[in-house]
Amino acid sequence: MSIIKAETHPLDDYLRTERLPHVWCPGCGIGTVLGAYLRAMKNVGLDSEKSIMVSGIGCTGRTAGYVRMDSFHTTHGRAIPFAVGLKAARPELNVTVFSGDGDLFAIGGNHIIHAARRNANITVIAINNFTYGMTGGQLAPTTPETGITTTSPYGNVESPFNLAGLIAVAGASYVARWTSLHVRRLEKSLEKALKKRGFSFVEVLSQCPTAYGRRNGMRDPVDTLKYFQKYAVVKNHVNPLEGVIEPNKPFILGEFVDAPEEATFEDKLWELTKSEFLHTSQAERSEWIIEHRRHLEILSRIISGRGEDNEQS
């Protein structure tokens, strides 16, 4: 029995197939994680008409271009502010931020901790490949100690961020960490994150054979996954501050935080502004916003000083 040739994939309904094959290098884990996310979306039964993917800049930022749903490729590090604003204006939409460690934690590090503090009802998927892949493998805030990159040729001397720990401390409702090898658990975790009301954060450790692995003895993507297989310890609900990743030492994967539901940022905003809008429900207000979008655009231009009148004067 040999392999059967096929024309379409089961996930093709969720992908812009005309743009495939994607730009990621052979063996890159981003495609795997995107697949897990789309499967989780399918399992939860989310409507792709009502889902939005927001991404920043970088390799992972390119995902927004491959999903068959509304998506936005923001400026560097600003995926979170865009998503929080979107969710505040249109709470019925399911907003996911899909971005890399450099975009979310270096350039946009400020935004993500504040979104977690506010408990904005969005899902954030951060793919951590330990480096800035797209720009040529520079030192990132997640590069493990002694890791060799183009800007740390003698080994990194800084301690890396513990992303899951940082976001858990900032007050997120759901925090988990998996790798691109633990795809089934990642899928289940993403289902949970998508269903969760409140700020949910899933960190996915991934291989970067081209920029990081090549300089650290893992030229083949399989080597990095074998490394994950060797050192990953799956433990649920441990103290997230213990989840430090050190080279050649066991690191913890699992669900760190699964907090009971609290009022989200959008809920509080709605409570505060509903008397102003004179609407009875959030859905009604969303309809109103869609109806008056043109007027709101003009209004926001006038407020920010970008109106046509301003340009002339």
Binding site: I4, E7, H9, V222
Partner: peptide, 14 residues
């Protein structure tokens, strides 16, 4: 049964 869209494969070997 294993199905493959051959021209999408990048031969990563995972």
């Amino acid at each position: 049964e294993v199905y493959l869209i051959e021209d999408r494969c990048k031969g990563c070997g995972l």
